[in-house]
Write a protein that binds this DNA or RNA. Structure first.
Lengths: 336, 336
DNA sequence: GGAATTTGTGTAATCCTTTACAGCTCTTCA
DNA sequence: TGAAGAGCTGTAAAGGATTACACAAATTCC
């Protein structure tokens, strides 16, 4: 079923078939039709390996994420894939399971498959791993790796905007005593979120009470424990912002277990807007992470690089607050 | 950076380098070492396209699912991928978004990429789409497509076992009045679940009260509406089994909204055991779908076919009940 | 009418591995 | 000692597409 068969059937050379296949100009109308018919009749599908071998590109992009099981990622993967499919690019994807050392393996695998470009959407990135891709001539785009801003194309998300909106919402409701559930400060992404939150707080002239900041593991369990710690404080915050939704869900559970009613006794705001956020009770107000847009930017960036076009300077994307039912005025307060 | 360079450096023929690369026997110890060194020094990575072109296999498997955003799938994908990676197989995956017609495109894409095998893990399958893969000589494995049992290798899940366990649990608690939230009966998978439930009910000598069966869309919203309908019945069931967790979560929300306490006033059991099941309040008792095992079976099956080995006859897998906190004795009853 | 283009198509080299086959050197054995 | 066999390694032909280059025919231009 190779191109030669088609060429014979259409009574032309393989070169001509190839030209038709790739839509090159300069083939007579009638010849094109003849070739097309032969292709259809023989149900011919070009061999991608032969093509890639010759052309040096595979039309495959790699996508590396931290964890498929984290509900944050499916939308991102979905968006990336949809765009890729539209351009005829196949995506192969792997995950590091949060282990930056595994990034190295992932990238190696992608190099071995000779993908045309790689998007790295993990919270943690070791630069050494990237170098290997660069050395192999494969362009890379990162997500929100401030530490490497400038060195690599990088889709940035301005967390502060989201926290500021959340804060303004809480302040408007009358809250003044606001706690925070942070992630492990050894993780870039968690540190970034905490810094953004404290920055937003400071912008509003509020100071950060360290006893109102608890640290969790970015998962439900950690949120539960962090909330237990915060509930034991005296005085206690009247509102809590969590640095991701999973921990906010844990916080909700802990509050429930301690018979603290949300939102009447305590307001909770999450971050990310993963699907569960709207499925818990009460539905969680949360800051929506623009991950579909992140995926889109990342893909476009790689696509441009691969085509040898200019890439624009990174303008950060902004998360926005989504108000649901986990926020209300503090007990005994009236709206101002 | 081709094999010729390595061969020159190691002072052998490309054939010998290839033999070393592929671990073929019959190369002198010393030569192997020399070649290995050359490979390492030159940081040589074989070109997969050239290899695939020659060998006729790509070491890529396709995985087609219904929906990445459905929390059911990530674990399945993860498990499939992990096994594949262990064998040096790359997975490319796509989703049909529940549209059986899109399966056709998905399979076409996979054929164009000339994957070595395809696993189809969607709820709905049109046979015509599969034929194209078979014609292209690509083996296919299905998940739970009873309609095509026998024609294609097929990983079956015996839903009845799970429902029977759920039922026995509810009966032991003292429930007799048990309702069911089904999915759209136009979908194979939803119909299969409903049939399995009614079969389990009948096995226990209970009859099916049609007014205690409601139909939802397999998502949270549909579960909510279905539950509202069931709550309006008189008499009302004391326990509800939903045909997936998302609808069970919706049911939980509806119960909550109607001030029906779960599990005190009403017991709810879900199906699948997706991550949210344990994150809602109360944590949902549910029937765990053995999807990691499904993925494993599917992969092994394809792997055997690709290697030309015998494949075993399908023994179905069994889901099992996971008891959490959404089930309790009916109001005013004591355990028997 | 002949030179210069333009248009359309074919020839053959190339991309990089794998592998059938051949050939060489050394043992081993009768 | 000569033949047979074992153990290594090299030669060269695939495998299926793309593409630089060449060439023939048709058109345009002086």
């Amino acid at each position: 079923m190779d191109i030669l068969q088609v060429a014979k059937r259409a009574n032309v050379s393989t070169a001509t078939v190839s030209r038709v296949l790739n839509g090159f100009p300069g083939v007579r109308e009638k010849t094109v039709a003849r070739v097309r018919r032969a292709i259809a009749e023989m149900n011919y599908v070009p061999n991608p390996n032969a093509r890639s071998l010759r052309v040096g590109r595979t039309r495959m992009f790699g996508l590396i994420v931290s964890d498929v099981n984290n509900p944050f990622f499916p939308e991102l993967i979905d968006a990336f894939e949809a765009l890729a499919a539209a351009e005829g690019i196949e995506v192969i994807f792997t995950h590091t399971n949060y282990d930056p050392r595994r990034l190295h393996n992932c990238i190696r695998r992608m190099i071995e498959r000779s993908v045309d470009a790689i998007a790295v959407m993990t919270s943690e990135v070791e630069e050494d791993s990237l170098k290997e891709a660069i050395n192999a001539g494969i362009p890379v785009v990162l997500m929100n790796q401030r530490a490497m801003a400038g060195k690599y194309p990088n889709v940035l998300v301005e967390y502060t905007t989201g926290f500021r909106e959340a804060l303004e919402h809480l302040l408007a409701l009358g809250h003044r005593d606001i706690g925070f559930i942070a992630g492990p400060q050894s993780l870039n992404s968690a540190r970034g979120r905490k810094d953004a939150f404290t920055a937003a707080l400071r912008d509003h002239g509020l100071h950060v009470r360290s006893e109102w900041i608890a640290i969790g593991d970015m998962r439900v369990e950690g949120g539960r424990k962090a909330m237990d710690a915060l509930l034991a404080r005296n005085p206690r915050p009247t509102a809590i912002v969590a640095s991701n939704d999973l921990m906010a869900v844990g916080a909700l559970q802990a509050a429930h277990a301690s018979r603290v009613r949300v939102p009447r006794d305590l307001s909770i705001i999450g971050f990310d807007d993963v699907p569960i956020a709207s499925m818990v009770h009460p539905p969680l107000s949360t800051i929506r992470h623009p991950r579909r847009e992140v995926a889109a930017r990342a893909f476009e960036c790689l696509w441009k690089i691969v085509q040898g076009r200019e890439i624009a300077v990174d303008q950060p994307l902004h998360p926005h607050l989504v108000i649901r039912n986990s926020t209300a005025p503090p007990a005994g307060a009236k709206r101002r």
